[in-house]
Amino acid sequence: MSAVDNRADPAPLADRAAGALMGAFIGDALALGPHWYYDLDALRTRYGAWISDYTAPMPDHYLAGMKAGESSQAGVLLRLTLESLAERGSYDEADFCRRMDEVFFPQIDGTPMHGPGGYTSQSIREAWRKRMQQGLPWGQVAGNADTTEAAERTLAIAVRYALDPAALADAVTRNTVLTQTDGTVVAMTVAFGAVLGMLVEGHALDAAISVKLMARVKSGALPFHTVTSGNLQAPRPGSVEVPTAGRFPSPDALLTQSSIARAALDPDVRIEPAWKVSLVYGMPCAVYHQFPAAYYLAARFADDFESAVLHAVNGGGQNLARAMLTGALVGAQVGFSRIPQRFITGLADSAALRAIVQRVAVQVDTD
């Protein structure tokens, strides 16, 4: 059943879904070359004042040997998730885990600088060691990494279930805890998926989005704890809190988006140039740096895919996650049809990526 209420965007649903998915692949690949430069002077010396297209990593830096337009390991795992969704028609956890065991894990060895995509992140390394070396079952291999690794693949699940927020939250939660167990990370990852789902529906990333998200909490569609009434007003006298199993401890992960969107559109609150959002929210990998920066860029450049992802890339640090998440959020707002063609054709294996993206996007539109 569709959860749409007051859609703000008349663009076709499948176009928005495809835009979100392809936007993530594009953001990931755009940051491949200049990934993880925390010294911005070094970044500018090597890549110039403004990175505007796909680039290859330098021989002495992260991801060396890869080619411009290729996907990092985050893109590889996003594709694996999409392939499972496409073939199964929905989120099938057993199929996802089977693909990890049979397709992905044999390509890595538990060390950082190895495997498809050039670098294996912490939570994936931990899962590999517990699964492949210790023989632990899925459900017992997750770690406490505080990064966006789960969000980078579960964004596909969020798009697939954009019209069913309860199923979205359930599937994103279940997939996230396969590799990451920190409660705050899981809550923020599910919140990101909920926001992305709303943008795919056609809602705007603006000052009203948190109110809409909280309405879904009140209806029971999103599993967050809340005792307030209305727009975070005091609880009504005599109101009784009913415990809900598995509910996140607070709704705070759903509240930051409206404040950030309001700031992004407020003429008295300016980050200039916008790539300096990385300095405001932080350049490292943790979720509390990455999600706010992506929300800011996606709200500020809601109608301008190119500006959003390029400012994400040019901010340095963990720009790959920032650009991937931003690309998904803005891609959902502009739609696949309004993503600059050069970004699509410049992707390695572009035709195959486009086919899998369109296949899942159609599933969303035909539910």
Results as ranks from 00 to 15, higher is better:
Arg44Glu: 14
Gly89Phe: 03
Trp128Val: 01
Pro116Lys: 10
Leu199Ser: 09
Ser210Pro: 05
Phe25Gly: 01
Trp138Glu: 12
Leu168Phe: 01
Ala42Lys: 10
Arg359Met: 08
Gln341Asp: 15
Ala68Gly: 09
Cys285Ser: 11
Ser307Asp: 11
Asp182Asn: 15
Asp365Ala: 15
Ala261Asn: 01
Asp266Leu: 10
His289Arg: 12
His311Ile: 04
His311Phe: 08
Ala151Asp: 05
Gln140Ser: 09
Arg354Lys: 15
Arg338Met: 04
Gly327Val: 04
Tyr296Met: 08
Met132Leu: 06
Gln341Gly: 11
Ala162His: 05
Val159Thr: 09
Gly331His: 07
Arg99Ala: 09
Gln134Cys: 08
Ala8Tyr: 03
Arg98Leu: 08
Thr154Leu: 09
Arg98Gly: 13
Val364Met: 04
Ser84Phe: 00
Val172Cys: 02
Pro243Arg: 11
Pro137Trp: 07
Pro112Trp: 07
Gln363Cys: 09
Asp170His: 13
Tyr37Met: 07
Phe96Ser: 10
Leu78Gly: 06
Ala253Asp: 10
Ala194Met: 03
Asp365Lys: 12
Met198Gln: 14
Ala308Glu: 00
Val185Thr: 15
Glu102His: 03
Thr184Trp: 12
Thr45Tyr: 06
Ser90Gln: 14
Ala323Trp: 02
Met324Gln: 11
Arg322Thr: 02
Trp138Cys: 12
Trp138Val: 12
Asp206Ile: 05
Ala156Met: 04
Ser219Leu: 13
Thr226Asp: 15
Arg247Thr: 14
Ala299Leu: 01
Arg16Glu: 04
Phe291Cys: 04
Ser90Tyr: 13
Gly193Gln: 02
Gln140Lys: 12
Val330His: 01
Val269Thr: 14
Leu168Glu: 01
Phe96Ala: 13
Asp266Met: 10
Val172His: 01
Glu83Val: 07
Tyr54Ala: 06
Ala142Thr: 09
Val141Cys: 10
Val185Asp: 08
Ala74Leu: 11
Gly115Ile: 06
Thr228Gln: 11
Pro235Gly: 03
Pro340Arg: 07
Gly316Tyr: 00
Gln233Phe: 10
Asp28Phe: 05
Leu136Ile: 06
Ala162Ile: 04
Pro340Asp: 05
Leu32Asn: 05
Met132Ser: 08
Leu265Asp: 11
Ala323Asn: 05
Val313Pro: 00
Lys212Ile: 04
Val277Pro: 01
Asn319Tyr: 03
Gln333Val: 02
Ala42Gly: 06
Ser84Asp: 13
Asp41Tyr: 09
Ala86Met: 08
Val362Gly: 07
Pro165Ile: 04
Thr326Ile: 02
Val313Glu: 01
Glu70Phe: 09
His225Arg: 11
Thr226Met: 06
Leu136Asp: 06
Thr228Tyr: 10
Leu222Arg: 06
Val76Ser: 07
Pro340His: 05
Gly315Met: 12
Ile209Gly: 00
Ala328Pro: 02
Gly117Pro: 11
Val103Gly: 02
Leu255Gly: 03
Trp36Tyr: 11
Ala86Leu: 12
Arg125Gly: 08
Val186Lys: 05
Ala308Tyr: 02
His114Val: 09
Ser84Trp: 01
Val362Glu: 14
Ser52Gly: 15
Met188Leu: 08
Glu93Asp: 09
Val211Phe: 00
Lys276Trp: 07
Pro292Lys: 01
Ala194Phe: 02
Pro340Ala: 06
Val362Gln: 14
Leu136Pro: 05
Gly65Glu: 02
Val277Thr: 12
Ala191Glu: 02
Tyr296Trp: 15
Arg88Cys: 10
Tyr288Ile: 14
Ala332Ser: 01
Asp92Gly: 03
Arg236Thr: 14
Val186Asn: 03
